[in-house]
């Protein structure tokens, strides 16, 4: 446990600068985009419409891709330069702990990214209100507008899940995304290319779930639970097989 905690702190501190940069962009870009988009010609538009038309959503997806790419780079950095992966594998700790500490670091950094994202929605809303108020006074400001925007926007519903099945779905998507990216890198390193089938499967499923959620076409709980269950089972497989690859030393 102690070695896990020490490794975890090491992993986080070695990647925190890059993650903080991505988080900074996550925080600041939406605010700039929203500020730019609000003008006297679209005062009647609601926050969720401005949010969508400002390009913030595309930027968010782009930043997720950048974050996951950064994770892959973090895995590969062990093989380049100082070749720290070899040092790690000779440490007198269970190799499972080495894997889990890196995975936990990825998770924690993803949560940091998420909390910055939802903070940026709050700040973005206040910037929107201030901007509208500056241009036209309070004539165009809806009472309780952020609450209404979150309820009415399919995209914001994903960021701010309300019901248990939506929260579970979010957890499953994040776990699957992070474990599959890590697993994909390990598969490539150990030349187990068959593993990519499962990675593609999980990415495909995640995309389908997100499309369904954005279109709000899932109307019964079982649909939510089945998709979340599938993603979690795939995640468990990724973790199990990654640990196996670590233990065998196949990744070097």
């Amino acid at each position: 446990m102690e070695s896990f905690y020490r490794l975890l702190n090491y992993e986080i501190s070695s990647m925190i600068k890059g993650v903080l940069l991505i988080c900074f962009l996550t925080l600041i870009l939406p605010v700039i985009l929203i500020y730019r988009t609000v003008g006297s010609h679209n005062l009647n538009e609601r926050f969720e419409e401005i949010y969508a038309s400002s390009g913030t959503i595309v930027v968010f997806y782009l930043l997720i891709v950048i974050l996951l790419t950064y994770y892959i780079l973090r895995v590969y950095s062990g093989y380049w330069g100082n070749k720290s992966i070899y040092t790690f594998l000779t440490l007198p700790v269970n190799r499972r702990v080495i894997y889990l500490s890196k995975l936990s670091a990825f998770m924690i950094c993803f949560l940091l990214f998420y909390v910055t994202k939802i903070l940026s929605v709050h700040i973005g809303y206040h910037v929107f209100i201030l901007r509208v108020d500056r241009i036209a006074g309070n004539e165009f400001i809806m009472n309780n507008g952020l609450f209404l925007a979150v309820l009415r926007s399919n995209y914001l519903q994903i960021l701010f899940p309300y019901s248990f099945h939506a929260i579970l779905s979010n957890i499953a998507i994040v776990i699957c995304l992070v474990t599959s990216v890590y697993y994909a890198a390990l598969c490539e390193r150990s030349q187990k290319y068959l593993g990519f089938i499962f990675v593609i499967l999980s990415v495909g499923l995640t995309v389908f779930v997100l499309i369904d959620r954005i279109n709000r076409t899932i109307y019964d709980n079982s649909g939510w639970y089945i998709s979340s269950g599938f993603l979690l089972v795939l995640s468990l497989f990724f973790i199990w097989h990654s640990i196996k690859l670590y233990k065998r030393g196949a990744i070097v």
Binding site: Y5, L8, N9, I12, S13, I16, S104, A105, I108, L111, L112, Y114, V115, I118, L119, H122, N144, L146, F147, V150, F160, P161, Y162
Partner: peptide, 26 residues
């Protein structure tokens, strides 16, 4: 640096909880 995980997790959990509940409490 030694306890970076704890220093991160606490504000993350509080932040996620507060920013979500804040919306629906309104």
């Amino acid at each position: 640096k030694k306890h970076l995980a704890i220093f991160l997790i606490l504000p993350i959990v509080i932040g996620i909880g507060f920013l979500n509940i804040n919306i629906y409490a309104s």
